[in-house]
Amino acid sequence: MKLREIAHSRTGDKGNISNISVIAYDSKDYEKIKAALTAEKVKDFFSDIVKGEVVRYELPNIGALNFVMYNALGGGVTRTLAHDMHGKGLSAAILNMDI
């Protein structure tokens, strides 16, 4: 199953740090998402762009996980040559993960 079938996502950035939130559509799917999405799996999924640490924060009251990815935006908005300088497309990418 693709993650997008049970969750949606939002992305933010500060400098060379990107964060991705994954939010369950239904709270009953939160534990499934939590078990499937470790910081290591997210780092591996984004291995082409994430060169630093990935930290996972759990928000069980809202059925969400937040991943903070360091050294992930090619130096940051004013320095990167990437098409998606802010990393907004990363939210769509993570939802394509198989879980």
Rank of each mutant, 00 (worst) to 15 (best):
G12I: 06
G12R: 12
G12H: 03
G12N: 08
D13A: 09
D13K: 09
D13M: 11
D13Y: 06
D13I: 00
K14H: 08
K14F: 13
K14Y: 05
K14N: 11
G15N: 09
G15F: 09
G15S: 06
G15A: 07
N16R: 03
N16W: 03
N16L: 02
I17W: 03
I17E: 13
I17D: 09
I17M: 11
S18Q: 10
S18Y: 13
S18C: 15
N19R: 07
N19K: 10
N19V: 08
N19D: 03
N19Q: 00
N19A: 00
N19G: 03
N19M: 00
N19Y: 02
I20P: 08
I20L: 11
I20T: 03
S21T: 12
S21V: 00
S21I: 00
S21C: 04
S21H: 04
S21M: 02
V22F: 11
V22P: 06
V22A: 03
I23K: 09
I23R: 13
I23L: 11
I23C: 09
A24M: 01
A24Y: 01
A24R: 05
A24C: 10
Y25Q: 05
Y25I: 01
D26C: 12
D26A: 10
D26R: 12
D26L: 08
D26G: 01
K28I: 15
K28F: 10
D29E: 13
D29S: 08
Y30C: 00
E31W: 10
E31L: 12
E31I: 12
E31R: 15
I33V: 02
I33S: 06
I33N: 01
I33C: 01
K34R: 15
K34H: 14
A35Y: 15
A35P: 09
A35N: 14
A36E: 09
A36I: 06
A36N: 08
A36R: 03
L37M: 02
L37Q: 02
L37G: 00
T38R: 07
A39L: 09
A39Q: 10
E40T: 02
K41W: 08
V42P: 08
V42N: 02
V42A: 04
V42H: 04
K43E: 06
K43V: 00
D44L: 07
D44A: 06
D44G: 02
F45E: 05
F45K: 02
F45S: 01
